[in-house]
């Protein structure tokens, strides 16, 4: 269970929000010259990192406003919440605690953030 701090309403349970997938995806500026492959990339391909992830949320059972979140997907820890008109925070602001692709102890599940 995640608590998300809506920049307009304050901290609420995640079940009040809906996730809008990766943030900062830009619609291609030159649609007429795009190949099928490029279109496929834009429509279907999204980053799916284990670690730092920029994503969009909407407070659908609250103020209904969209905002962006930086979250570590390996621990569900929210690192930063910012409004859509704010600048994308730089990746170097956050410490990526992952040491291997899976970012986990050699044996065990992804619950290590809870276990410690």
């Amino acid at each position: 269970m995640i608590l998300i701090k809506c920049p307009y309403c304050g901290e609420r349970d995640q079940s009040e929000f809906a996730n809008g997938g990766e943030a900062h995806v830009v619609r291609p500026k030159n649609p007429e010259s795009l190949s099928d492959k490029d279109w496929g990339e834009y429509v279907f391909y999204r980053n799916n990192p284990k670690g730092i992830f920029y994503e969009r949320w909407v407070h659908s059972h609250g103020c209904k406003k969209w905002f962006n979140v930086v979250r570590n997907t390996s621990t569900d820890q929210i690192l930063k919440v910012y409004k859509v008109n704010e600048k994308r925070p730089d990746l170097t602001e956050f410490e990526n605690t992952l040491k291997s692709p899976s970012g986990e102890p050699s044996v065990g599940s992804g619950n290590f953030a809870v276990k410690k």
Partner: peptide
């Protein structure tokens, strides 16, 4: 769960 995550637990809702 309604968001990307690699934690093998998920939310209670």
């Amino acid at each position: 769960d309604g968001y990307n995550s690699f934690t093998q637990r998920g939310g209670y809702d």
